[in-house]
Design a protein around this nucleic acid. Structure first.
Lengths: 153, 153
DNA sequence: TTCTAAATAAGAATTATTACTATTTAGATT
DNA sequence: AATCTAAATAGTAATAATTCTTATTTAGAA
């Protein structure tokens, strides 16, 4: 199955979910979702807005923010936990962690090995009803490490 | 050792660290740090500001933000990874996770059992040089669960 | 005590996000 | 296919969190 087909499947799923939740299937929703689903860069709202404007020049900032929130509410996309000023979004539903570079703010997906599973601290359920676990590893990414080395020469 | 003494120790450590890093020991820095170190509520900047104003009515918002950033830079306090509009701060240097309530936004510390240790996904170091690992568990805290039950009756 | 760079207060500016309102449109109903 | 209506949108204003600017103050070295 090629990439185009994969995306079509995701869009179909979005349409199904919209109908299921009584939400309309609008071209804006599709385009905005496509941007997140197509990217592995965990884009922020502004990046999505700029990208969507390419094909829909009249799209409004408000629509992007509103749509991101509703896609999140329907579990189609997720917000990455971070310490950055802008929210970052992820459409990958497979459980995974994130490596966040403190230099360039790039967010990388860390997928678990087949035998690994997401840790859950023993004391966690004492605090309430758990919805999901989020793991971020902060550090300096290989790209930035290489740049540091290049500068030294 | 009582609580007052514990805090004095922490302040002494702050003073030492300031001197070590060539930073001045100002009453504002001490008060702001005290607020975080004294609290287990992971306060945001505004809360710290309001609290510091009690004893220092002329403290400025800017000083609070600037000081929080410098305390963070000197590893005296840490920012909690979250999806909330406000940054939340933590002065506890012991490795621990966070339970974040999606209803009331309260942040609880999850300390590990003696035999437990912080997970590190096998693939993590492939992405770069790791600085720290951050685990958030999102869910509904016991207090909010209880409130839900109360409402139903 | 003097001096100077660092830190601060006060308020303006910026950035990310959300709210408001008139208009458009998805999709249900005829 | 045409009509209708609530949901969604565009455009723009407003808000909220944080950062910047500048004149003044102060920690701590000399």
């Amino acid at each position: 199955m090629d990439n185009k087909q994969l995306i079509e499947e995701k869009i179909d799923y979005l349409k199904t979910m919209c109908k299921l939740k009584g939400m309309r299937v609008t071209p804006q929703r599709i385009e905005i979702y496509k941007q997140i689903a197509n990217s592995c860069e965990h884009p922020d709202a502004e990046t999505v807005y700029e990208a969507v404007k390419e094909t829909m020049p009249n799209v409004s900032v408000d629509t992007v923010y509103r749509t991101l929130s509703s896609l999140e509410e329907m579990d189609m996309i997720f917000r990455v936990d971070n310490q950055l000023p802008k929210a970052r979004f992820d459409a990958d539903k497979r459980p995974h962690h994130h490596f966040i570079c403190v230099k360039c703010n790039e967010v990388y997906d860390i997928f678990l090995e087949p035998n690994e599973n997401v840790l859950l601290p023993k004391n966690a359920e004492k605090f309430g009803e758990i919805k999901d676990v989020n793991v971020q590893i902060r550090g300096i990414c290989n790209k930035c490490l290489q740049e540091q080395i290049n500068k030294q020469n």
